[in-house]
Amino acid sequence: MRLKFLFLLLAGLAALPVSADDKAALDAFAAGREQENQRNFLSAADFYLEAQVQADDPVQKANALISAARAFRKARKYGDEFDCLQKLAQGHVTRINYYEVVKRQFEIGDKFHAGHRDYYRSWLPFIKKDDRTIEIYEAAIKNAPCGPEAPEAMLRLGRLYLNDGKVDQAIRHFSEAIKLHPGTEAARYAALELSNALLTLAKRGDGDGSNAQLALEAFDTFLAKHPDDPQTDWIKRSREEIYGIIAARLCDIGKFYSKNKKYDVAQRYFTTVIRDYPSTKSTAEAENELAAINEEFRANGQEWTPEKRVFREEAFPAEHSDTLHVPGSGSRWLLPIKDTRGGLVDRNKEEVITDDML
């Protein structure tokens, strides 16, 4: 009886109609498999992609994309293979071996970095498509920023951006390689590239001198981590160059104030150059500027002395407020307590709230 019931159940399942889309997907997949067996890989990939579009079942879609990626790989159309893998990584994470998919994306990026370019048609192999190295590396790094292949990709990507003149994006990738993959060889080279990029920005002039300060931090960090590195001599020379850039900037600001008769302000900038950057060329300029200020005063029968700045401490003035206690002032109360009495609150005295006051 049980066998008869099972037979009827299986017969009923077999008789269930297959949707038109699923049937078209199965037919396209079968055609793709036949073309792949005949080594017509591009035709096979087209059939697999058609199956992916027609299929309703997500598992069937994933299988079609995997087969299309395999066919494109056999046809050496690595850019199209990457597109299939990216769809798998974004839409079928639970149905694939994610690590292997992303690892293959990095490998494709390496191939493009080495010079590979997809061709437009098999019968026009001499017409190549555009370089997709940056696009592929960016996507692969986004998919697995902490993967073992990521630091080398970040380093290469930063160098590509440097070659394109996009220094800010290069700095971002060098910094990520150093932060996410410390201790790797790629991170060491990224630190050198980062130092060089910041040095380039500092030479161009950055207004507030922030790039010069960042370059100094990068130099000091590299020397602390790699004191015996062969590149330490270059780092030290570059650091002296940065000192010269900072000193020249401060000296120019001092000249501006001196030209506008703001001698006390100018004196502070010139003194900073002489005190903090004595080995730079700007030190002599700063000394000459200070001497010129003194000579101008003497020519007018005056003696110039720098203004002395005096600092004094003053208490907070009493102010109107309805807040009796501010959270975080050392008491155990977490919420502000309002004073309904009004009047002035002395901020210089810490008020203590006791139970009998509530």
Rank of each mutant, 00 (worst) to 15 (best):
P182W: 13
T232K: 07
D206P: 07
H226D: 07
W234D: 09
T184P: 04
L180P: 04
G205L: 06
I235M: 08
S195A: 15
K225A: 14
L214Y: 07
L198I: 10
F174G: 02
A186E: 13
G207M: 03
E185H: 05
L198A: 02
T200V: 10
K179Y: 11
S175C: 01
G205R: 10
T232C: 09
K236T: 13
E185S: 12
I178P: 05
E185A: 14
G209D: 01
A197E: 12
N196V: 12
A190V: 05
R188Q: 15
E241F: 04
G209V: 05
L199Y: 15
S210H: 07
T221A: 15
G209L: 03
A191D: 09
L199E: 05
A197Y: 13
D233F: 14
R188N: 08
S210F: 05
L198V: 08
Q231R: 15
R188K: 15
T200K: 13
K236M: 07
K203S: 11
L216I: 12
P230V: 06
R188S: 09
A202N: 01
S210T: 14
K179S: 13
Q213G: 00
F219V: 00
A177S: 08
T221H: 10
G209F: 02
L214E: 11
I235A: 04
L180D: 08
P227W: 04
L201Y: 03
L201T: 06
A218T: 03
P230K: 10
E176N: 11
F222W: 00
R188A: 13
A187D: 08
H181S: 09
R188I: 06
W234I: 09
T221E: 10
T221P: 02
I242F: 01
D208S: 11
R188E: 15
A197F: 09
H181I: 09
A186G: 03
Y189R: 13
P227C: 01
D208T: 11
D233M: 12
I242C: 01
I242W: 00
D206R: 10
D206Y: 04
Y189G: 10
G207F: 07
P230R: 03
S238V: 00
R237V: 08
G205C: 06
A187Q: 07
W234L: 10
P230T: 01
A215W: 04
D208V: 12
S238K: 06
S238P: 00
A215N: 10
I235F: 03
S210M: 08
A212P: 01
A202L: 02
